[in-house]
């Protein structure tokens, strides 16, 4: 199961024509505003230059936001939970212990597996996921409030 790394792909929003037009329009205005800003700067009208620049930058920021929002939505992919589940098998007779990946048919307290080291039978003592890493725990930020 952990082999499946791709997840499920699903169609999401494509950038629409209206959005594209809006972005183009904002772009033209922003360019124009910045041009005006430079003109004012050359005329030593500092305050006006500052506000024109502000409008221009704001316009470009809006464009970027609109564009990237549409873009990230397009390549949406669903990450299915990838869990690495481990099975621990122990022999009571000789103490031999194996830890391996979970296989279908494994279950806790299954005890009909022949031991490869002696003539005894092995029992599955543990089946669980790998412990979460510090990074994963940090992501569940409620961890920092535990006391």
């Amino acid at each position: 199961m952990s082999k499946r790394s791709g997840g499920v792909e699903y169609s999401a929003f494509n950038i629409s024509l209206i959005t594209l037009l809006a972005i183009a329009l904002i772009g033209v205005f922003s360019l124009f505003a910045i041009y005006q800003g430079f003109q004012s700067y050359n005329n030593r009208e500092m305050e006006q230059a500052y506000y024109y620049m502000l409008i221009g930058i704001f316009g470009f920021a809006t464009m970027g936001f609109m564009f990237f929002r549409s873009k990230t939505l397009v390549k949406n992919k669903l990450d299915l939970p990838k869990a690495e589940v481990l099975t621990t098998i122990e022999c009571k007779k000789c103490g031999y212990k194996i830890v391996r990946k979970f296989e279908r048919g494994d279950y806790i307290f299954k005890n009909d597996i022949a031991c490869s080291k002696c003539d005894g039978m092995m029992t599955i003592t543990r089946v669980h996921r790998k412990k979460k890493t510090e990074k994963e725990l940090e992501k569940e930020f409620s961890n920092t409030w535990q006391s």
Partner: peptide, 27 residues
């Protein structure tokens, strides 16, 4: 919904799940 999608993975393979802790304690 995300919890149920994780359940698909567990039930497909017959893995023990979080809800099984009571049964595991008894076991």
């Amino acid at each position: 919904i995300e919890a149920y999608s994780a359940a698909l993975l567990a039930f497909k393979q017959g893995m023990p799940i979080g809800d099984g802790v009571g049964a595991l304690t008894a076991a």
